[in-house]
């Protein structure tokens, strides 16, 4: 047996294979749905339930190992590295969509209107097209319905920026409370963070509704709509996940799981929350504002 004071190796676990199976089921359900199969949604729901079951089970076994004191400093560092590099991989995922946005704004849309080496393209394809951003008239207007307007940076997006930045402050207050062993303050600040996150998602959903029902701004509104909805949509999904994670941390705080020096789960979630915050700043500047 590997001695626990030197090394920690977990016992064999069923969760990894449950996770693979659940993801597999989810993907099959999603693919069936996209292929117009009527049973797709049931498979998808089954897979999603599998994923929730897996997360609950895997995390509860990790939590009980952590509470029983099985982990040493080395495990803690491994977890920290794991979370840090996971967040970096998420950054690169968003980078692909930001890359698409910059490419469209700086290169492909101007080329289509004849700039640079796009002269011939412009003349042969859609000579009437004029570059603009936001681009409400598409190069080939026949296959798109124009949208009335885009969502301005002032208004809800500015309020949302304020909400997320504030939530970054509240989670830091929660961390300070945790370090000072003030559990009531910790829980209160965490609850405030969850609320701010939830409010953000609520307002964002309202914006989407407004865009779809009144502005006619949709996923199918050319490259502007594509980049707008995929960037903000993936961000919104990450905020939702982050809020769920903070909620889980709140419940664990209520149960008194964390100690002054030993609260990696809290920190991991806080890092994730700050990452989501920074992505939003990028969105606010490059998608809404400029």
């Amino acid at each position: 047996m590997v001695s626990k004071d030197i090394y920690f190796i977990p016992e064999p676990s069923k969760w990894p294979i449950v996770a693979s199976l659940a993801l597999f089921t989810t993907f099959i359900g999603g693919a069936m749905l996209l292929n117009q199969s009527s049973n797709g949604k049931y498979v998808l729901i089954l897979g999603a339930m599998g994923i929730i079951y897996m997360f609950a089970g895997w995390f509860s076994s990790v939590i009980s190992e952590s509470l029983s004191g099985s982990y040493n400093r080395q495990v803690d560092v491994s977890f920290r590295m794991g979370m840090g590099w996971f967040i970096f991989s998420e950054v690169m995922f968003f980078a692909a969509f930001f890359g698409a946005l910059f490419y469209a704004r700086v290169l492909s849309v101007p080329w289509l209107s004849g700039e640079g080496h796009g002269v011939a393209t412009h003349q042969f394809l859609w000579p009437a097209f004029k570059a603009a951003w936001p681009m409400s008239v598409m190069p080939n207007p026949a296959s798109f319905t124009a949208y009335k307007d885009t969502i301005p940076a002032t208004g809800i997006p500015a309020i949302n920026t304020l909400l997320l930045l504030t939530s970054g402050v509240t989670i830091t207050f929660a961390h300070w409370a945790l370090k000072k062993v003030q559990r009531n303050h910790l829980c209160a600040w965490l609850a405030a963070t969850v609320l701010l996150g939830a409010l953000f998602v609520y307002l964002q959903a309202g914006e989407y509704h407004h865009a779809y029902s009144e502005l006619n701004l949709k996923l199918s509104s050319g490259i502007y709509g594509s980049t707008f909805f995929l960037l903000t949509g993936f961000h919104g999904f990450h905020v939702t996940m982050g809020a769920v994670m903070i909620l889980a941390i709140l419940f664990r705080s209520l149960k008194g799981h964390f100690t002054k020096n030993d609260h990696f789960a809290f920190e991991a979630v806080a890092w994730y929350w700050h990452f989501v915050d920074v992505v939003w700043l990028g969105l606010f500047i490059f998608v809404y504002w400029l």
């Binding site: 199918s220 050319g222 490259i223 594509s226």
Partner: peptide, 23 residues
């Protein structure tokens, strides 16, 4: 992006909507 271009009407790689297959 390929998936949303095929099923959800986005224009990442469709020049008619301002995108570019070369992207």
């Amino acid at each position: 992006m390929l998936l949303t271009d095929k099923y959800f009407g986005t224009s990442f790689f469709n020049a008619a909507g301002g995108g570019d297959p070369v992207l």
